[in-house]
Design a protein around this nucleic acid. Structure first.
Lengths: 235, 235
DNA sequence: GTCGTTTCTGACGATATAGTCGAAAATGAC
DNA sequence: GTCATTTTCGACTATATCGTCAGAAACGAC
């Protein structure tokens, strides 16, 4: 069988983690990972669109054909990377938010998880932001909505478990958008505004205000929902 | 004299507005504007990077050479468009915020100005967001920082005029980042989250919470600044 | 109308990139 | 060692895009 080139997170080995049995599997995994990390690195420099396959293979120090052996196209690679990165982010958020009962603490943890996650992973942040920007386009990369929607949904689940009154789907989605949008929105401007890398500290200092804002927003949603139980179309 | 191709907002005519005296000047202005609007339209579909000169000239229904007669390159056009769009946004913000004395009202107006500005100008919003995303790259388009920094600075000026205690530059900048980042950050996620175009209503409903959050953030900055007058490096 | 200037045109050469493919290298089983 | 299989390689073709340029068309002055 020649040429897998499927977008699978790894050899669908079923095995837990990094331990690849044979030397060949190990070598393949290394090459694949080299390509992904090279891509991440170039993406953070030139952006998704202007990065060429040659850029990636040259930085990964492999032949061009090797890329196409592992991935169907640049778009396929982007899908894969976005999926994996957001899955990691979701995992970090969930880990950080296990067992929380009250809303303000949960919001603080969710925001904190974002900050910690991106703190030392600039390339992932660029990937995240470039992906979001791509979503605003009519003809962006295919299949990028799904991982982002999943990411929003996992935030919604956390919130839903803590908020007493049941919220409408649309309300929940709006709150999740607010959480995700606020964090990265501020981040994106802070980038051009501060010289050194005090960005994280800066964002951290905004946390309290953000949590208060979101808690208030959610409370308003809940109470406005209570006033007229059924009518929530126009808000 | 052949080939202007400079990035000027218009013929440096000195004249106020649209009234171009001669037919030739009018025709040139129309062509130029056709190109800009065609570019805006294609940018909103394919993004800045993947848009080709041919895309633009074809949509504008002019020959390819015409583009190079008016603009030096795609990058030059992007700079120009970004500058003009942000200048318009700043003008709208300033108009909406004239004579405001208290901080919460000012914040509300600034946010409101953003919402109103982008409400019926989807293509401009995409331009704005794509530009911001480009700022995260190491090798993005040249000369895009300046207009964005100017935009932040004009927000800072408004805030500085209202806040009693003088804030350090860095603090002001952070607050401006927060305002700009929050608004567009939420917007960007709401895009993929809601089917219809209730995005504006949604954002509007967040306004109160945002204003409260920012006011609190600013108050914290001010009071924390009062506690130790000189020490504000690490915050 | 003529004529000099400005504006527009699209074919063209140069270059860059995507994706393919046959061959080579590495691996593992024997 | 042999041999089949997996993985890697990079030259190659086809295509797309940039930016140029000589000339055409529109214009304004006369």
């Amino acid at each position: 069988m020649i040429g897998t080139a499927i977008e699978q997170p790894m050899k669908s080995d079923g095995n837990p983690a990094k331990a690849a049995r044979t030397r060949q599997q190990r070598r393949t995994g290394v090459t694949r990972q080299k390509l992904i990390e090279a891509a991440k690195s170039v993406f953070a420099e030139r952006g998704l669109d202007l990065t060429t396959i040659d850029d990636i293979t040259e930085r990964a120090d492999v032949g061009k054909g090797t890329f196409y052996y592992h991935f169907k196209s640049k778009e396929g690679l982007i899908r894969l990377m976005m999926r994996e990165m957001l899955a990691e982010l979701v995992a970090a958020i969930n880990k950080r938010c296990a067992g929380i009962e009250d809303l303000p603490t949960l919001l603080d943890r969710i925001i904190g998880a974002h900050i910690e996650f991106f703190a030392n992973r600039w390339e992932d942040y660029v990937l995240y932001f470039q992906g979001r920007a791509d979503l605003t386009l009519q003809e962006g990369y295919q299949g990028l909505e799904t991982p982002f929607v999943n990411y929003l949904e996992s935030i919604e689940e956390l919130l839903d478990a803590v908020i007493k009154r049941r919220l409408a789907d649309l309300e929940l989605r709006r709150i999740a958008c607010a959480v995700a949008g606020f964090v990265s929105g501020y981040y994106s401007f802070a980038v051009i505004a501060t010289d050194n890398d005090t960005v994280d500290d800066t964002l951290r200092s905004l946390r309290g205000a953000l949590v208060a804002s979101l808690a208030r927003f959610i409370n308003e949603s809940v109470s406005s929902g209570e006033k007229d139980g059924s009518e929530r179309v126009a808000w």
